[in-house]
């Protein structure tokens, strides 16, 4: 139980990552695979933010006087996640446009039919 309360954010983040990976591995519909990529992206962002968290910390913004600098969370992972979110949006948009082209060309979004696989 103590393990659960200590690592609950890590467990949630990796839960999202594994759900995303499972969708990517198993599903045959291209739109579902793209949704899986989105979920995986969210999990990675959540994990980075959880790594930077400091117990009982506040946001690293000196918006009013009297905020304790020792009590703030790490700003570096937050800046990295800001970058990562924007890149995630770009990847999703590009993947959706490729899905549109594939649908126009093959008439289906089923990956088995597109790649002519058996399973």
């Amino acid at each position: 139980m103590e393990f659960l309360s200590n690592y609950i954010y890590y467990i949630g983040a990796f839960g999202l990552i594994f759900i995303g990976l499972f969708i990517i591995l198993v599903k045959h519909n291209l739109i579902k695979v793209i949704i899986g990529i989105g979920i995986l992206d969210t999990g990675v962002n959540l994990f980075l933010i959880a790594v930077g968290y400091i117990s009982k910390g506040t946001a690293p913004i000196f918006s009013k006087a009297g905020l304790d600098a020792n009590n703030m969370v790490d700003p570096v992972p937050q800046a990295l996640v800001l970058t990562s979110i924007v890149i995630g949006v770009a990847i999703l948009a590009l993947a959706l446009s490729l899905a549109i082209r594939l649908y126009k060309h093959y008439g289906t979004l089923d990956l088995r039919k597109i790649k002519e696989q058996r399973w």
Binding site: N6, Y7, Y9, Y10, A50, V51, G52, Y53, I54, S55, P60, A69, M72, D74, P75, V76
Partner: peptide
């Protein structure tokens, strides 16, 4: 993950930026 404790400060550079 057992080597990464949750809720502790991990980087020195983050504290430099805050200070």
């Amino acid at each position: 993950l057992q080597d990464i404790p949750f809720g502790a400060a991990k980087t020195k550079v983050g504290h430099y930026y805050i200070d």
